[in-house]
Write a protein that binds this DNA or RNA. Sequence first.
DNA 1: ATTCCACAGGAAGGGCGGGGTT
DNA 2: AACCCCGCCCTTCCTGTGGAAT
Length: 418
Amino acid sequence: MERKEQTYLDSIFEKYLKARRIFKNKEVLRHSYTPKELPHRREQIETLAHILVPVLRGETPSNVFVYGKTGTGKTVTVKFVTEELKKISQRYGIPVDVIYLNCEIVDTQYRVLANIVNYFKHESGFEVPLVGWPTDEVYKKLKDVIDARERFVIIVLDEIDKLIKKSGDDILYSLTRINTELNNAKVSVIGISNDLKFKEYLDPRVLSSLSEEEVVFPPYDANQLRDILMQRAREAFYPDVLDDAVVPLCAALAAREHGDARRALDLLRVSGEIAEREGASKVTEKHVWKAQEKIEQDTMEEVIKTLPLHSKILLYSIVLLDENGDLPANTGDVYAVYKELCDYMDVEPLTQRRISDLINELDMLGIINAKVVSKGRYGRTKEIRLNVTPYKVKNIYRFDYSLQPLLPVNIAIQRRLF
DNA sequence: ATTCCACAGGAAGGGCGGGGTT
DNA sequence: AACCCCGCCCTTCCTGTGGAAT
């Protein structure tokens, strides 16, 4: 017994000892990492550089609107170009400040203005509290602080659509016109968005001044993703740990999902992590498929976890029907079970009309399949199927306090209904 | 050709919470 | 603090409909 235990431990340690280390520098595969070169973005880099170059001649550059889907390199390219500009302008003795704000976090006018003022706090000795001041006070302060000396200020508003949807375009109006009120400094705005439609929300005046110039980032195709991954892989992994097929497979899988480079990098990283954990000496195609599976599962789990209460109850009634072998079910059946569950949990049930919409939502999220079918004489309804395993759903609910009562309920409910 | 099931899904409006305004 | 406005969630009421059954 003891002997057995000993060899078992030995084998564990040996496995890890023998296993070649996989990652040389995992940071390179993170989204936040800015590589030294950006493959297949030469055109966008040049356009941006061309737009910003007036700075070096002491002229105000145009405002820019940058758009493209997620994972097309917008943010990283803008950061890259603005960094380069900062370096070069230093040589020319022209002060350039680049203020990068992600509007998903900095999501109100006030916060945007306050963040800009606070960016200069070391220089001005001023700091605006995160709440409390009237917005126009902050705006005045902002002008003072910026205009304290001659310089260029480039304000990058990432995910600008989030800001506009939440708090309107007033702030853009102010920022794009601020130059008329400044004597020393010059400001230009770079707006980044992955939602092109949001332009419709903008006041035409704002739109015309923000999109004086536009830079479009098309999705990457599989070959381009492969180049990107190759470049990063050289930095991230030790030599020869990647099987030849790994990078092309990651690229192909990510290309299938609208050419998202983030997705591709995640795949590559997770593949490596899985190989590492298995104690494998090489990352192979097999690990990539596992990574693909894991990422899908993780996002699905996250989606289910954050569902509102009634959607969770609704999902659970479909799970019960599935366990009972009653899928596909129609809307009426599902609604009946749902009502029972609400009753059991002492929750007021929603109407069938509303549940019908929630079913559609679950369908769009890919958790269930709901197809409208006509059963002739027997009416028109949805055929509802489950797209995840009941086990998975239960496992997620196990950690949700408010759903505890549901877990032991299955058999009782089923008996009462059928 | 007609009927009729079992819903789908549009329209309108109530209630409510969060943000901005006065 | 009082107020208002907007977006969101939900209900009520409603008309529409594909196709098996008759």
